[in-house]
Write a protein that binds this DNA or RNA. Structure first.
Lengths: 242, 242
DNA sequence: TCAGTTGTAGTCAAAATGACTCTAACTAAG
DNA sequence: CTTAGTTAGAGTCATTTTGACTACAACTGA
């Protein structure tokens, strides 16, 4: 909303100053096996800054908001540029607008967070300036990005506790054990397989297929498919794209 | 985050274009008795636009983001300008950045939502250009503000269902029945007093005082005080103000 | 054929929930 | 002063949900 009668006279001069820069960043989560633990763990891709400020430090992928893109489109495009992948889940996280986030100029960052299926994440190419890091115990990042990642982690765990976003870490078909592994990795605690199965089934978010996953050293588990409303997951977003 | 190596050459020219305008708006909720129902109902203040676009239509209070304020400060200041009151609850709602929200120029609005205690809300002065409206069944508003209000309502009801924000509609001391009335008004269904009491007590968000509310036509109810972490309510916000 | 492993159903006690009853403590009417 | 009306607040009880656990099914690999 631009200009209402509630702008006091004292603010008039400030309004004429150049507005803050607008940027879009994305926290991209994927699950990967970790060396030390038998559980999956959360990873995210970071990019190395090639200019000041914070030159050579790692930062969240992002860039300025272009005139041609809506906020969501801008985030999706940026994710494409970084990992070459389309996210199965992309939702607005928060708008960060503290006065001193960037030493040079005032920057307001609208941050999105994304989930990537493990199968896709494997293809995500690393390079000199793009690397995957474990989401917990992250080194010091550029700007306020450590806090942003922490907040994204908090939101992810919160939403996982009673949402249906876990499926976005997986492919189209999956076993119940795989869903359970996602929960265990994100919430970082073990979950009883039998009870978890019972609870998943009564949410009606999944439906069984006729297929079974072969090749394990054990009884082949049935494959399931996500049956919930695909938009129900994005329920942190407003109904339509605004 | 400004500029990463992931900005393609095609985007360079766009970066030089003037950035979108940045605005702050606030959805302010208060509970008031309604004429038709015996329940409280949700109201919010709107302002009449005094210039194009949408001249003379009602809109959410808001204004441009000034250089001197953080996002939260800007929202708080705006709320002060509109109602003359400090909110007991103020949290970021969403950043709206669709391409065609405003007919003239591209505007990205960072919207906050606030809760006002009933006692305070009574003092909020109305004027020719500021009026309170019932939150449900709202008339057509300027810009995309109807959708914003709907989304704020959704978030409020969601958070009420298992949060501790109800207390922000009340004063420092309150009876359990008053808390129940807040729930009934927001969730729009009746709640069993005895069960509600039992559940409230085991959350440990409240503590009893030695005082009782006198003057009713019945046994005086005990007054309680909010004892939870005041920041726990703002748990939709990141830990510190960024 | 057997040991190892995981999938899947089921059992059972504990905890949480929803509908309900009962008494306490006040005001207002008579 | 007494009584009817009202809400506060404790308590009961059947149902549902949860967590811990058991048992059997169905595969692989030796």
């Amino acid at each position: 909303m631009v200009g209402t009668q509630f702008v006091s006279a004292a603010n008039i001069s400030e309004r004429l100053v150049q507005p803050p820069a607008l940027a879009i960043s994305t926290v991209i989560f994927a699950l990967r096996p970790s060396e030390d633990s038998d559980r999956l763990s959360l990873w995210l891709p970071l990019v190395r800054r090639i200019r000041e400020p914070f030159k050579d430090q790692w930062a969240l992928p992002g860039g300025p908001l272009t005139q041609a893109d809506s906020l969501l489109d801008a985030a999706a495009r940026n994710l494409q540029d970084t990992t070459g992948l389309a996210p199965s889940y992309l939702e607005q996280l928060y708008a960060f607008g503290g006065l001193h986030r960037s030493p040079s100029q005032r920057v307001v960052s609208i941050v999105y967070w994304a989930l990537i299926a493990s199968t896709e994440a494997e293809q995500a190419q690393e390079s000199e300036n793009v690397k995957w890091f474990r989401a917990d115990g992250l080194q010091s990042l550029a700007f306020d990005h450590n806090k942003i990642v922490d907040y994204a982690l908090w939101r992810l765990r919160n939403k996982m506790a009673y949402g249906s976003i876990a499926y976005h870490f997986l492919g189209e078909k999956f076993t119940l054990a795989q869903v359970r592994e996602v929960y265990e990795a994100v919430l970082n605690r073990s979950v009883d397989p039998a009870n978890f199965r019972r609870q998943l089934k009564q949410t009606h978010h999944i439906e069984p297929t006729d297929e079974f996953l072969q090749g394990g050293k054990h009884r082949p588990p049935r494959l399931y498919r996500y049956a919930g409303d695909p938009h129900a997951d994005h329920s942190g977003d407003p109904p339509s794209s605004l």
